[in-house]
Structures are given as structure tokens and as C-alpha cells.
């Protein structure tokens, strides 16, 4: 079966006054139909830039320097402008971290969902036509109301005409999820969609995702820094650090028996409620300056298991059972 998404050797750079920031430096992974893949890493590891790159949404001063992103076998970077517009929202959609900010404050939520569906069903309209409301499509409206109902927004008919500020944090994220699923996409990129929500709402959103994805057989790339969410939701996990993929594999294997010292350190830094007396272990040192990253393994300066060769070059991906690990220890198979 063909992967929904195949990312190969992706490099995304930002040209700044101080030099080139290599936000993403050689990322490879794939997503199968209906699969939920977690993309984890600390802030600044390149998770969100990876997501934007998948949709070819990176804007100046950013650029895709190298690599391919294949959606259904088709290279996203080869698509024409109109093909790209069909892809965005139609085939791949995105759920953003701060939904209140991701909606336009002066348009009703229903109207914004309507505009997405109308664009993908009937195409774009002239701005004047849109301002006068002549683009209104009753079928689109009905489909939007049904979707608001499906994502668990009570009284969807009335909520259609409410503005974003009239929604609660949890409800607006539900509406965002509804927008993401509106055109029946094969892949949803969820960029930290539960950050900023309280735990019970987070749980509801996770369950909502789980159910809908199962029902519609949609694949999901779930970007987060929260490993407990990954444990609950994801089939596989991709661990990123400083623009590089450190480890890829099935969630249960990676989280129970990490093969990369970075994954291990990340797991160790989670506070454990069942061991309250244990000191929280923080990862010593700082994330390397993106303008001046080490030549060797990106994690070498902070790694407790560092060897001499680690400083020479960043390790390639070694296959280790059903996972891939970027660490020289994996090559030796000794850990």
C-alpha cells in the first residue's frame, strides 16, 4: 500500500541577517493511511516548520532547500499554484495550536467553515461577490452545520452564526477540528492542538480525534512536546531534535525502550506522579544555537553517553528492529 505521506531528506532553511537558520535538516518519515503519527521534540526542534513544509506553506525568509514531500506519490513541491490550493484543506488540512487566533475575529465561525467548503466545492469567488454575500451556498451551510454537530458542538444551527469570541476554548478547537475534516482530507496535520487547553478539554479533543480518524480513516500527524499525549494517541512516533530525526518507531517500543539517548532523556524529564520524591531530571545544557550547530551529533554536547566519534559527524539512521535510530550506539547494537 502506498504511504499517504512520504517525507525524504527535507531541509528547510531561513535566511536571516545573522546567517542561515537550518530549522529542518534532513527529515525522513512516512505516514500510512489511517495512521496516527506523533512528532515530538523540544521547542525549536523544527516540528512546526516540518508541518508547514509538508503543505509548502513556508514563507519568506524561509525556503525549502532540499528534499521531497510526496503526498499520494505526488511531489508537493512540484504542484502548480491551483493544484496546491486544492491540496491545502482539501487533501491535507491543519489544526492550529491557538484556535482563537486561527479564526478571523470579525467573521462568524460558520461562515469561515462555509468559505473553506465553498472554495473546495465551487471554487474561489470575486471579493466583491463575497462581501455582498452572493457566494452563499445552502448545501455548504448544511454540511457545515452537520460537521459542527459531528464534532460535538451543541446547538450547531445557532452556533453557526456565532463569532469566535463567543466560543469557549474547547468549543473553538472543536470547530477547528471540524474545519480540518470538512473536505474529507486523507491527512490532518495537528500542530499542538491541545496546548493551552485544560486537561479535561484536552482529553475530549483527543477522544474526538481518535473517533473521527477511525471513522473516516484519516491519517494524522500529531505534533506535540507532550509524550503522554503521544502514548495515549499515536501508533508511531517521530522524535526530533535540532532539525534532525533522532528516532522513529512504534510508540510502545520507543517509549518503553528508547534506543536514542535523547529519547531517553526526554522520557526521564517527565515528572512522575507515582514517584513524587524522585527528582525531576532535566537535560543538562541548552539546545544548540540554530545558527551555529555542532558538526557532529546534534545532541553530543548534552548526551550522557557521548563517544569521541559522536563529535565527527551526525549519525545516519540505523535500522533497529522495526525502528530507525540516529545514534552510533544503535549501530553497535549495544546501547
Amino acid at each position: 500500500m502506498m504511504s499517504v505521506l512520504q517525507v525524504d531528506g527535507l531541509h528547510t532553511y531561513f535566511d536571516t541577517e545573522n546567517g542561515i537558520v537550518r530549522a529542518v535538516e534532513g527529515v525522513d518519515f512516512s505516514i500510512e493511511p489511517g495512521e496516527i503519527v506523533g512528532l515530538v521534540g523540544e521547542s525549536g526542534s523544527g516540528k512546526s516548520v516540518t508541518a508547514s513544509s509538508i503543505m509548502n506553506l513556508v514563507e519568506r525568509p524561509g525556503r525549502i532547500a532540499e528534499g521531497t514531500v510526496r503526498y499520494d506519490g505526488q511531489d508537493v513541491f512540484d504542484l502548480s499554484k491551483s493544484e496546491l490550493q486544492d491540496l491545502r484543506g482539501g487533501e491535507i488540512s491543519m489544526v492550529f495550536q491557538d484556535p482563537m487566533n486561527a479564526f478571523n475575529p470579525t467573521q462568524t465561525v460558520g461562515r469561515q467553515l462555509h468559505d473553506v467548503l465553498r472554495t473546495h466545492r465551487n471554487g474561489a469567488v470575486h471579493p466583491v461577490k463575497r462581501i455582498l454575500g452572493l457566494d452563499h451556498d445552502e448545501d455548504c451551510k448544511e454540511a457545515v452545520v452537520e460537521m459542527l454537530d459531528a464534532v460535538g458542538i451543541p446547538n450547531p444551527e445557532a452556533r453557526y452564526s456565532d463569532y469566535p469570541h463567543e466560543f469557549s476554548g474547547g468549543m473553538i478547537q472543536r470547530a477547528m477540528v471540524g474545519m480540518a475534516l470538512l473536505c474529507d482530507p486523507k491527512l490532518v496535520l495537528a500542530d499542538e492542538p491541545t496546548t493551552g487547553l485544560d486537561v479535561s478539554i484536552e482529553r475530549q479533543i483527543l477522544e474526538l480525534f481518535n473517533d473521527l480518524v477511525e471513522e473516516l480513516n484519516t491519517a494524522v500527524l500529531w505534533i506535540t512536546h507532550d509524550l503522554s499525549v503521544v502514548a495515549k494517541l499515536c501508533d508511531r512516533v517521530v522524535v526530533m531534535y535540532a532539525g534532525k530525526v533522532m528516532e522513529v518507531g512504534p510508540t510502545d517500543v520507543v517509549l518503553s525502550d528508547p534506543a536514542n539517548p535523547y529519547t531517553e532523556a526526554l522520557l526521564d524529564s517527565i515528572p512522575r506522579y507515582d514517584r513524587p520524591d524522585e527528582e525531576i531530571r532535566v537535560i543538562e545544557g541548552d539546545v544548540p544555537d540554530p545558527l551555529n550547530r555542532p558538526d557532529g551529533c546534534r545532541f553530543a554536547d548534552r548526551c550522557p553517553k557521548v563517544h569521541e566519534r559522536c563529535h565527527d559527524a551526525h549519525p545516519p539512521q540505523y535500522e533497529l528492529g522495526d525502528r530507525e535510530v540516529a545514534c552510533y550506539l544503535a549501530e553497535e547494537g549495544t546501547k
Binding site: R88, G89, A102, N104, Q107, H120
Partner: peptide, 26 residues
Amino acid sequence: QEGYVRTARAYGIDERETTYVYALKN
């Protein structure tokens, strides 16, 4: 620069609609 413009772009909504309907009004 606002988030809703990024959203509209990520959902394939026409650039002209985003600029002259959404952003202009605000």
C-alpha cells in the same frame, strides 16, 4: 500577519478573498 490569514492560506482559500475580504475589513 495574523493567524487567520495563515489559516486561510493553509485551507487553500483564494489569496484575493483573504486579502480584500478578511484582512481589509479588519
